[in-house]
């Protein structure tokens, strides 16, 4: 089985995923305060400032699904977590259950 291609982009994405998990609960708490209209504006503003102090790799939007085989960032089939080429290779090898080459 080929190893996961560990290029810098994959490593960065792994870091981002870990960061999101580590900071998720605290960020949610700040988000709750910042978006709550029943709280005084000053408190909400402070919460928003706190949210801005979090690093780049703590936001879920920085996480990108990359190919789990080749690390490619585009043309990913999210159902399999593979890029289109790796999907083809694996499907032809018969490693993807229920996937067959179409023929008619």
């Amino acid at each position: 089985m080929p190893k996961l291609a560990k290029n810098i982009r994959v490593l960065r994405d792994i870091k981002a995923r870990q960061g999101v998990q580590d900071n998720e609960i605290v960020r949610r708490a700040y988000l709750y305060v910042a978006r709550n209209q029943s709280l005084p504006p000053q408190v909400r503003y402070q919460a928003q400032l706190q949210l801005n102090t979090f690093g780049r790799y703590t936001r879920p939007t920085t996480v990108k699904n990359r190919c789990t085989e080749s690390g490619r960032g585009r043309g990913i089939m999210s159902e399999f977590g593979l890029c289109r080429f790796q999907f083809r290779l694996k499907a032809l090898k018969g490693e993807l259950v229920g996937v067959r080459k179409a023929s008619w």
């Binding site: 996961l4 995923r17 998990q21 609960i25 209209q37 699904n65 789990t68 977590g81």
Partner: peptide, 26 residues
């Protein structure tokens, strides 16, 4: 219809699933 921010508390956590995306290193 005031926004209470409850949806940020109610939403399920996404982190645990995110971390498991890539196969574990050998």
């Amino acid at each position: 219809s005031q926004r209470t921010g409850a949806k940020y508390l109610r939403a399920p956590l996404r982190g645990p699933a995110m971390v498991q995306y890539y196969p574990k290193p050998e």
